[in-house]
Design a protein around this nucleic acid. Structure first.
Length: 419
DNA sequence: TCTGGGGTCCTAGGACCC
DNA sequence: TCTGGGGTCCTAGGACCC
């Protein structure tokens, strides 16, 4: 019998901050987005104090001070490492796993019929906590969509943090109380349209005419209805390489000079190209964009973008930086204060089936060696030991991170000392 | 003063081909 | 006067996710 599990880390970023600083236990903790822009994670204590997800930092500073809420800039190096540890711990218990995001994974329990699934899940939960320090919740259901709902219940209404939603009578009751906007795949727009038709709960949606919904909305909604009925339409997807890779950031302060923005793009292009090589791909094109601050009502908003196709797929940082520069030269206009820019590598293909042109193939082989050496040095001696000069040393574009915690699980020099 | 970043999938419409 | 139809590919934009 088909059975899916959804495993989700509780308040993931806030929990990560706690792992290496136990004094944060039972205290309200929040984590800010890049540039310390807005709140993107909250511990349960912070939620109770009324900290709302996505609120700009400057709007809740007072609340933070009043309740002595602990603040952190986001530390993706730390979160990425802990995520990896959590996922490999889960694989130990559930070998068929789809890592869905940094803090979530679907697992298949099709072959677990003879297990006491709930007790087993409780063991998984306690082992993951013991091995990684991260608390998780587990929801089980006949489809991914139902497993998501079960996880929601596990997190909100159970002591154990584990919930199995397979009994038809129980499903009936829960779906009748579950608002559609909490269903995975129903966003704000769809919820509004469906509410207007009188579809308010997951049960209403499940009992709607699937074919009609397909015609009037989309095939995605049709599948979702079947999923709510317990007919699995969304399979477990074992990790596939990304089709595009993006790196973009807001700048710590507005930038007006071409050279500063090119320096930032050099850094983004380097990061994106490193990711590209890590998944053994090459890109066939590039997309570059930049824009001014959309929230500034006093100055006109300027946005521009450009994409280029390459004659030949590439994973060379120098080549990608050159191409990014070509794009930037076309879209940059003087006289604006830019707030954000980004690079996306497009239409990725596996590195080995790359069609190599006979004349240029020598260059590719040479380049591959240079890139491998660069990556090795940076891996052994620390990220950013070697970087491209066009990135500059002044780094006017750097992010604001006033509340950063140490990257103690990935950098020796930032490790904690235990006395 | 101060508002994140990285993805995927689907659809509609235009260009082009036979 | 009367001017086909179907398929495919590409792109832009929207909606959704975490």
């Amino acid at each position: 019998m088909k059975l899916f599990g959804l495993i989700d880390c509780n308040n993931f970023y806030a929990s990560c901050e706690r792992v290496f600083d136990p004094t944060l236990e039972h205290k309200p903790v929040v984590v800010l987005s890049n540039n310390d822009g807005c709140v993107i994670a909250r511990s349960n204590e912070a939620k109770k104090l009324g900290v709302v997800m996505g609120t700009p930092f400057y709007q809740c500073k007072k609340l933070f001070e009043k309740h002595d809420i602990k603040i952190f800039s986001s530390n993706y190096e730390l979160y990425g490492d802990l995520s990896h540890r959590v996922m490999s711990s889960i694989t130990h218990f559930y070998p068929e796993i789809e890592v869905y995001s940094i803090d979530e994974a679907f697992v298949s329990l099709d072959s677990f019929d003879h297990f006491n699934l709930i007790e087993y899940a409780k063991i998984v939960k306690s082992k993951v906590k013991q091995w990684t320090g991260i608390p998780i919740s587990i929801g089980l259901g006949r489809t991914k969509t139902l497993a998501k709902i079960a996880n929601h219940i596990a997190k909100k209404f159970t002591e154990a943090g584990v919930y199995m939603l397979t009994d038809p009578v129980v499903i009936e009751n829960i779906l009748a109380k579950f608002p559609i906007n909490n269903i995975w795949g129903i966003g704000r727009q769809l919820a509004k349209k469906l509410n207007a038709r009188g579809i308010m709960t997951a049960r209403d949606l499940r009992d709607a005419d699937a074919k009609l919904m397909r015609r009037e909305h989309s095939v995605v909604l049709e599948k979702l209805i079947h999923e709510l009925r317990g007919e699995a339409c969304l399979p477990l997807e074992i990790i596939q390489p990304k089709k595009n890779i993006m790196c973009s950031h807001s700048f710590g302060k507005p930038l007006a000079e071409f050279d500063d923005i090119f320096a930032a793009l050099t850094n983004y292009a380097s990061k994106a190209t490193l990711k590209l090589r890590r998944q053994f791909s090459r890109a066939q094109g590039i997309y570059v964009f930049l824009h001014t601050n959309p929230h500034n009502t006093k100055k006109p908003y300027y946005f521009n973008q450009m994409s280029l196709r390459f004659a030949e797929a590439s994973n060379s940082t120098s080549f990608i930086i050159q191409q990014a520069r070509l794009c930037l030269e076309k879209i940059f206009k003087t006289g604006h204060d830019y707030k954000k820019a980004g690079v996306m590598l497009l239409d990725l293909v596996p590195e080995d089936i790359n069609q190599i042109d006979i004349i240029t193939s020598q260059d590719i082989i040479k380049n591959d060696k240079v890139m491998a050496t660069l990556d090795q040095i940076n891996q052994r001696l620390g990220k950013h030991t070697i970087f491209y000069a066009s990135e500059g040393v002044q780094k006017n574009w750097e992010l604001r991170r006033d509340y950063i915690s140490p990257r103690c699980s990935t950098r020796v020099e930032e490790a904690k000392t235990v006395y």
